[in-house]
Design a protein around this nucleic acid. Structure first.
Lengths: 132, 132
DNA sequence: GCCATTACTTACTTTTTTGTTAGTACCCTA
DNA sequence: TAGGGTACTAACAAAAAAGTAAGTAATGGC
């Protein structure tokens, strides 16, 4: 998340894999908290503190880091109001808004996958019992 | 990738974030090489060595690890033929096949995002020059 | 002058992921 | 009987990501 050694194989491989548009796109939202943040912003602008309260397990540090990366990657827009105490609002950008319908599809698939795995694991457990 | 400390905040947070179906789904393909592997398998079955050759920067260890996870998560099916030298084939499963059309959408979005960022960066660079 | 509020930083530690190198098992062929 | 091919595995090191704890700045209200 922080500074990277620019010459590592790790970095080279990152560049290699993101030449694939699909992998590139998924990497943009790959940070642990990013999709959660983006989902919260689907319904409209939110302040830093509102995001923190809605994602109860996130630390301020992680929220800041993820938001900074999302901003750098054009996924959220950050607006600072020159007030004291400070007020900062975050919202989706034009390009990230285009992903919203796709998130719906993926989310449905995720639910289906979870169902499938549950059945699979149940079946395997029953097999184990029978074998005894 | 290997063993995890089961009680870390890190692990707790993993569980928390994957209660969201969208995050859950993206985590399934979140390993560095997973989407690349899945894309190669879109066109049909492939042997271990074929995958290794088609993804030229991957090590055998990483390929093995990613395939094992994909298999555990029901994303690929592994078939071993009892021959010498060994032959192992990998293919997409019913559930991962359902993602293929969505990958197309994401991929297109990724290309568009890349374009957008390129223009944005070019514009910013020009602004910097003007300001001098 | 002191405290509260908000949105962060900074320095550091822990955990996880990724990469490197050198094996292994198996049987077939030369 | 030595070497080749295939699909791995194991031990270790490096890098990156995530988490912890303790600040900071600015100003309005008490």
């Amino acid at each position: 998340m922080a500074k990277r050694k620019e010459t590592s194989t790790n970095t080279e491989n990152r560049n290699y894999i993101t030449s694939c548009d699909l992998t590139y796109a998924v990497c943009l939202v790959g940070g642990r908290w990013k999709l959660l943040i983006l989902c919260k912003l689907e319904k409209g602008k939110l302040r830093f503190g509102e995001l923190r309260n809605q994602i109860c397990n996130i630390t301020e540090r992680m929220l800041t880091l993820q938001l900074r990366e999302l901003e750098r990657d054009g996924m959220v827009k950050r607006t600072v109001y020159a007030e004291v105490p400070p007020r900062v609002e975050y919202e989706l950008t034009e390009i990230s808004l285009k992903l919203v319908p796709i998130w719906g599809l993926i989310s449905n698939w995720g639910a289906e996958h979870r169902e499938t795995m549950l059945q699979k694991n149940t079946a395997e457990a029953e097999n184990l019992i029978e074998q005894q």
